[in-house]
Design a protein around this nucleic acid. Sequence first.
DNA 1: CTTGCGGGTTGAAAGGTTTCAACCACGTTA
DNA 2: TAACGTGGTTGAAACCTTTCAACCCGCAAG
Lengths: 344, 344
Amino acid sequence: MDNTGQRESPGRSVSVKDVAAAAGVSLGTVSNVMNRPDIVSATTRDHVLAVIEELGFVRNNAARQLRAGTNASVGMIVLDVRNPFFTDVAQGVETRLGEHRRPLILGNSGQQPERESMYLDLFEEQRVSGLLITPVGRVLPRLRRLRERGTAVVVVDRRIGSREFTSIAVDDKRGGRLAAEHLVGSGRRRIAFIGGPHGLNQVKHRLQGAQEVVDATPGVQLSSVETATMDAAAGSRAVADLLALSRNARPDALFAANDLVALGALQALTLASVRVPDDVAILGYDDIDFAASAAIPLSSVRQPRDELGTLAADMLLELIDNPGTKVRDRVLEPELVVRRSTGG
Amino acid sequence: MDNTGQRESPGRSVSVKDVAAAAGVSLGTVSNVMNRPDIVSATTRDHVLAVIEELGFVRNNAARQLRAGTNASVGMIVLDVRNPFFTDVAQGVETRLGEHRRPLILGNSGQQPERESMYLDLFEEQRVSGLLITPVGRVLPRLRRLRERGTAVVVVDRRIGSREFTSIAVDDKRGGRLAAEHLVGSGRRRIAFIGGPHGLNQVKHRLQGAQEVVDATPGVQLSSVETATMDAAAGSRAVADLLALSRNARPDALFAANDLVALGALQALTLASVRVPDDVAILGYDDIDFAASAAIPLSSVRQPRDELGTLAADMLLELIDNPGTKVRDRVLEPELVVRRSTGG
DNA sequence: CTTGCGGGTTGAAAGGTTTCAACCACGTTA
DNA sequence: TAACGTGGTTGAAACCTTTCAACCCGCAAG
């Protein structure tokens, strides 16, 4: 009550009880000041607030959550924080959630199921009120359980086949078709797809879309190099493999499953003095900001990533506020952006 | 006890009490199974684990934390998630923490003091065991309070003048000198620094370093365009301003406070048909992965970002395990990477 | 036969908040 | 004058886990 504040003993921290004592009110009143300021008289309210400030009281969230049973935070598990596509999406989510005073807790699976699982544990134990996830491993049972517990779940950038969970994604098959049509249309005949693992739906569908177009066009062939991850290094390695092929077996176009892979491929090709787009065209996916400023500006299939983020957040908020909302499955359209790497 | 598991009522979730009842043991034993498995007999342990699994019990972290008084999580507040430099650092931190089974909760201030403050509130209420922060606003008092409460604090990528907090950073003044020396050495005479706000120490020191070199070299002048943020858009805008200058007042070299700004500047110059590096040289900072693959590969002052991340994590862990550790102030050395944008 | 010991287990307290029924003081209405 | 609201405030219960002293039981030592 009369200590000088500064030298707070590091052991125990100030609790509502201390505040109540110092302010000469009951414990419940202090709580009311923080949670329903309107029902407490102006004078006591101001007084209590002053005491709180003076004592440096900070509510213990664990206790609050335990009693109240709710946690405002939302968890998000992304595939790869180092991929600007995901940070852009996360950014969109974060700002929208921020408007509703909900913190976003970001977890990075890095495409590893174990890490994804670790973050699921964390969020589940934490009882977050909502979860946004771009799944890697077999997480459907976990998600079901989460939802049974009352956690809102939105699957991002991937369509869960069984319309079981609300999801938002960009039409990957369509993106694959756009890509292939463009490459074929500009005269390419031997297309190589680079990306992986094929277990990821994003990858699979983009490849499928391309395959459809190729199948429908005589004289064009599509091969595929499966990678373990989707970063620039993987792109470079894939190109190394392709360059090992005999000259006329080599592809004349690369379709990369994302821009990082494409940029890696571009670098490797340049290093090997292969001319882009003359000898080989390159087409990426996502249209991250860096695609436009690449050595050879990169053509890419653009995903509306801001929209993806804000819409995902909106759907999640809706689901949190109104758990009865029925499952929705929004699909956004990708868009082809032609630049120099494909001869634009 | 005999419900089919699947149709768990969505209201109340399974608690230790339920597990204890179902397993026919006491509540304390269940807790022991989870926290000190070694002291409980193998048979009961296995049995309890089986029941846990069957009932889908997930410990309530709020209650655990309240009672145990500890939270394994570590919070980190970065300046800008969309800047690959920071995600690279965060990545390093995350993997190192992961090895110690500590989750990392990432908050993004986006260079906005209010958001920084919001995340500080969050982490403080959450009673995280450690905090990594690249500060924007005036947060010293907050940090002091945090530490008084027993939270380990490490300041990242910025040196707090008063050796009050453990910190790790890269020598920004040195970086500024390296940059200026290189530009001056390759014959440039009118250098413009782009970045901001100058309130950020990173920015200020890089500018100071450059200034020192310029001051020591007759015939060379340094001007500065202050920006509100440090993204590509800011770089483009700054260039627009510079291009408005009369032809012979224009700088012949740009030193950007980070690579994003540099890339933005590069794009704007290209668009305006200014030749890089012939008419204007550009030098960035950070050496993010995309610098090398830019249209004109970007020279840059490289910061050892992986090291920054892992060392920061190490220092924090040390501080958590051993709160008495005395304040340290590590400074890493930047390194100049010359590429084509400065005529390499 | 008693005592001591040690591995397992139990039961209850404790932790800090929110919530809610009860209560109070003080006008207002019948 | 009695009954009734009403705006504020109170006190205790409840949330779910961890922790720790106490206890139990079987066995070895004295």
